[in-house]
Computed example of a mutant assay.
Amino acid sequence: MDLTERPRRLRRDGIRGLVSETDLSASDLIAPVFVDATTDERVAIESMPGHERVPVAEAVDRVEEIRDTGVEAVIVFGIPESKDEAGTRAWAEDGVVQEAVRRIDAGTDAYVITDVCMCEYTDHGHCGILEPHAHEDPTLTVENDRTLDALGRIAVSHAEAGADMVAPSSMTDGMVGAIRESLDEAGHSAVPIMSYAAKYESAFYGPFRDAADGAPAFGDRRHYQMDPANSREAIREVELDVQQGADVLMVKPALPYLDVVRDVREHFDRPVAAYNVSGEYAMLHAAAENGWLDLEETAYESLLSIKRAGADLILTYFAEDIAARL
């Protein structure tokens, strides 16, 4: 037996770390923050253990808690005080995200990203302006082109409040181009766009919809989010966003779509982000609570696999816990 090749030689303590191929650091992580205009106190998110909605008055404190762990960037989601069919609170000057970002920008040195979408702000829970009769006809959902103007207004309102980056998540065709044009016309040409470029219609979003109060009141999002069966389509989607000026390209969810993360990494020369979504977080917590898995070890291994697949940035609810380990 020829044993001249012995890979185990490089797995011993001392050398193991030196030859490690993938490095995960706190600066790779982005922590989601939920700011709620309807409450004066923190509200636990039951399906996402360890996470809370925080009132606007505590947005700075929440971000400082995250910064203390070594995580440098946050992405802000808002729960508005009221909703309507057109989602008008999404771009209101005194909206929940706008007010929270102003405070975070003035009170911390965090890098602030904002989610640009309408599902949290519309009374129907869909990601844009509805087509006529969409309530009655399940084949109808969001009117794509009318939604673009609203997304541009939202992005500008976030930039004017102090957002460092905007992240459109609605999977509206042309959203990156419309937002880039709106930002540039408003004098915010330096604000980058992190596009949810390949966002799938996934069963892993359930806990997030509890957290952000953004579940559809009827129907689903399969007509505008991607089919989980499709990977080649993701390259087409991402390429369109690159052509329209996207600065960072996101794949969402992460773990069930590591093949897509790798494909995007290999095809494009932009930074790649992956969203380790709420369902991925919740299932590890559920298994750990039953004693089936070690939470910290499986969380770390999950994030390491996302980085190994090609992600430069990882949005994750594990950010604070893993940053402490790192």
Rank of each mutant, 00 (worst) to 15 (best):
D123G: 06
V242P: 07
A59C: 11
I113N: 09
R11F: 11
E72A: 13
W292V: 13
E58V: 05
H124K: 09
L293K: 03
D269R: 03
V166K: 03
S189M: 00
G214A: 15
A254K: 01
R308Y: 00
G291N: 05
S20A: 15
L326A: 12
H188I: 00
P32F: 10
L293Y: 12
K199G: 02
R236A: 13
M118W: 01
V56R: 10
V251G: 00
A155G: 04
T141F: 01
I66R: 06
N290F: 05
P271E: 02
A161H: 01
T114E: 09
E160I: 00
L3F: 15
I306E: 05
V238M: 01
M283E: 04
V191M: 01
R67E: 13
Y111C: 11
E52I: 00
V112P: 07
R265E: 11
G87H: 03
R67L: 15
E41W: 00
A159K: 05
R6I: 13
A190H: 13
E143F: 03
D23W: 05
A155N: 06
G206M: 05
T316R: 07
A246V: 01
T141D: 14
G95C: 10
R222V: 01
P80E: 06
T39S: 14
R67H: 05
D2G: 09
Y224E: 10
D115F: 10
A167W: 02
V101D: 07
T172A: 15
V43I: 15
L303Y: 11
S25F: 03
L18W: 13
A246T: 00
S182V: 02
M118P: 00
M250C: 12
A273M: 14
E131V: 10
E93V: 14
L140V: 12
G174H: 07
A288K: 08
S278I: 08
Q225E: 04
D2P: 13
V96R: 03
Y196G: 09
M194D: 06
E52M: 07
E81H: 11
L18Y: 14
P271I: 04
G128C: 07
A286R: 12
G187A: 06
I306L: 04
E93F: 02
E72L: 03
D68Y: 00
M250F: 06
I154D: 02
G70A: 12
V97A: 11
A254D: 08
D123C: 09
D149I: 12
A287W: 02
A274G: 07
S25C: 07
V63W: 11
R262L: 01
E93M: 01
L140N: 04
P32H: 10
R236F: 10
A217K: 14
L293M: 12
D164T: 01
A90S: 15
P228D: 07
H126C: 04
I79K: 11
E280D: 05
A273L: 09
A110N: 10
V96P: 08
G162Y: 06
A287Y: 06
E93Q: 12
P207L: 07
V54T: 13
D61T: 14
E185Q: 13
M118L: 15
D294F: 03
A211C: 11
S27P: 03
V277E: 04
I179H: 05
L326P: 00
R265N: 11
G128L: 09
L140R: 15
C127F: 02
E41I: 00
C127T: 08
R265M: 04
G291D: 07
E239A: 09
N290Y: 08
L3Q: 13
